[in-house]
Design a protein around this nucleic acid. Structure first.
Lengths: 220, 220
DNA sequence: ATACAATATGACTATCTGGTCACATGACCA
DNA sequence: TGGTCATGTGACCAGATAGTCATATTGTAT
């Protein structure tokens, strides 16, 4: 946790530090992120940095708190579709709204996903608890969907969860990778073309790649 | 390219260096890999290292050559199923045989995939050409499969390729992550249980997560 | 045995890292 | 005005990094 001194800082100064940290983690990942570069970029002294944070991990933890808070704020007044529409419809909404959030704070999301879901693979226990949090929600969803006969029960829960996580990550990476090339990322996300692409991604997850007669007529 | 001096080295010494490098890249990725640790682990002097290689990138390039060569050797006497069986059958064979190769050199594969497909995302142009090589083969395969009506043509080629790559990467990560915990990784790969898991992964890619009446009877 | 080339070595440079600490500055209150 | 406390500072530390180079050792051919 950042120290009290950090929270006492004027907003603009705090933001300057946070932005520098976001940029650093997004650009270099956790291991190679440099505190020296962060202090130079945010125009504070090395000593001040350590008056605000315990260490490198502490800054990163602050970014985690930040994204959690921002995500909660973002989702507060969004309304998910009725559960009666089925999990896939719900998941589609979740991914699409999630991508809108991602494009509202692309650098922050990029920093977090890079460290947590990309490097996290190799850091083992270090970031495991955060991944488990995301995991828990999806597991619940899948279990319910299997009960309702929506998800193929011959695929076990664990695997279905992995499939959904794999897709969420793949889509997030795709969106950040392509989106950051755009002038107006939010506009790009909401464009019909991008939305159709998202639909196709989710359609493949739902129905697979193979062409089957019965399904084809209800395609795009 | 490693210098001639390196290729003149006695085989055992060369292997010791290569193994140290593999271990280093697998453990730390490209950016954080340390040449100092490599020379200590392989019991050569710093000076010798720079008599063998230009720099860090040069060692990594040697590992790329190595895996290309080993993969070619491994696949040389393997026989893919007849193309008449369809792309999905072919892809299934490709993935399964690929995973056998992965488990024959797990550390090397881990080192390469980590740098190329995980960090490569962020290094931008640096490793792009290698990714495009893998890409080209899959693209060919998909195009043909669409012509033959096996792959849903409403999913465009580019996306189908991405789906297959995403799965290949996800499965590779899964296999290396789980497999390295096993005593005998090759035995584990070839076990009925693991093979069934691979089948399920590929089944989901082919038919999706959703339960549909027509498909269910032919499940596991 | 001599000469010459190939190979091996580790001390050394310049630069970076995360982190500490004695001190300086500023704000607020008595 | 003087005192107190929060905040700010950058020189400094020990340890790491990639890369160089003069010197030493080894191998080989004559």
């Amino acid at each position: 946790m950042p120290k009290q001194t950090f929270h006492n800082l004027p907003v603009k100064k705090r933001q300057k530090i946070v932005n520098a940290a976001i940029h650093e983690f997004a650009e270099y990942g956790f291991e190679s992120a440099s505190i020296n570069r962060i202090v130079v970029k945010s125009e504070i002294s090395k000593g001040s940095f350590y008056q605000y944070f315990e260490d490198k991990m502490d800054v990163f933890h602050h970014l985690l708190e930040l994204i959690a808070h921002e995500k909660a704020e973002f989702f507060k007044d969004k309304h998910p579709p009725d559960m009666g529409q089925g999990v896939f419809e719900y998941f589609r909404w979740l991914v699409k709204t999630g991508m809108e959030f991602n494009s509202s704070s692309p650098s922050l999301v990029r920093a977090i996903t890079r460290v947590l879901f990309v490097e996290g693979l190799y850091y083992g226990k270090l970031f495991e608890e955060y991944q488990q949090k995301a995991n828990a929600a999806i597991t619940m969803m899948i279990k319910q969907a299997m009960k309702l006969g929506e998800v193929d029960p011959s695929i076990d829960v664990e695997m279905a969860v992995m499939v959904m996580e794999t897709w969420t990550n793949a889509i997030t990476n795709y969106i950040l990778h392509e989106g950051l090339k755009q002038k107006d990322i939010m506009k790009w996300i909401k464009s019909a073309k991008t939305q159709e692409k998202l639909d196709k991604f989710l359609y493949v997850m739902e129905y697979g790649l193979r062409k089957t007669e019965s399904r084809f007529e209800k395609r795009f």
